[in-house]
């Protein structure tokens, strides 16, 4: 006795319906997870903007790129771990000057380590070793702000040749666009710095 011809059709129909139901559940669940997730607003600031943080405000005043020889001149006693005899331009240093103001009457601490510089897929935190050498105060003193005071901090960020794809990309470091990332959560705050080349022109 042969099976009725409608059997495979019914079987296929059941399989397709099950798949359609599963797919709908997956899509609805994904939409629910993403809609109920906290929204992370992207807040872009410009150079010179007074950015209010937790009782401290910050603004970018200067932005410049240096090569290794200049770093060793401006930061005596500093020897880069990434110094490359074959490439005298390695590493490079980007220094961002920020003016931080404490508008409160209490003494507050400024979290330098949470700040980073970003360009494309490259990013790096503040070089704490150079922070001491570039600024008059030590890193510990720099963080502390007495009531109603302000000071300008030079934030150094090191760029190493091996962090970039090839020599062309490395040479183009002064022409890339940079962002100074202040925080990533609960909101993504960053200052769009543009390229150091444009700053030189200004």
């Amino acid at each position: 006795m042969s099976l009725p011809k409608s059997r495979p059709v019914i079987r296929n129909l059941i399989i397709l319906s099950t798949l359609a139901i599963l797919l709908t559940i997956v899509v609805v669940k994904i939409a629910y997870v993403n809609s109920s997730a906290p929204n992370i607003p992207r807040v872009e600031h410009s150079v010179g903007d007074e950015i209010d943080g937790d009782n401290l405000s910050l603004s970018v005043t200067k932005f410049k790129v240096y090569d290794v020889n200049h770093i060793e001149k401006i930061a005596p006693g500093y020897t880069s771990l990434f110094r490359d005899s074959d490439n005298p331009n390695n590493p490079k240093l980007i220094v961002v000057d920020v003016k931080v103001t404490n508008r409160n009457t209490e003494r507050l601490l400024f979290d330098i380590s949470s700040i980073s510089l970003q360009s494309g897929a490259w990013s790096n935190g503040v070089s704490l070793m150079l922070l001491d050498s570039l600024n008059e105060e030590s890193a510990k003193e720099l963080r502390a702000f007495d009531g109603n005071t302000s000071k300008t901090i030079q934030l150094p960020f090191e760029l190493v040749g091996t962090q970039f794809k090839n020599s062309t990309d490395w040479e183009l470091v002064p022409q890339r666009d940079y962002d100074l990332v202040l925080s990533v959560y609960p909101a993504y705050h960053f200052v769009h710095l543009g390229s150091p080349k444009d700053w030189r022109a200004l």
Binding site: I30, V33, A121
Partner: peptide
């Protein structure tokens, strides 16, 4: 995707393996 939201990757978080290279 049914468990974890698709937050936009940000290089400065240092949580993503894709680098400049």
């Amino acid at each position: 995707a049914m468990i974890v939201p698709a937050f936009q990757p940000i290089p400065a978080t240092g949580m993503f393996t894709i680098s400049e290279l």
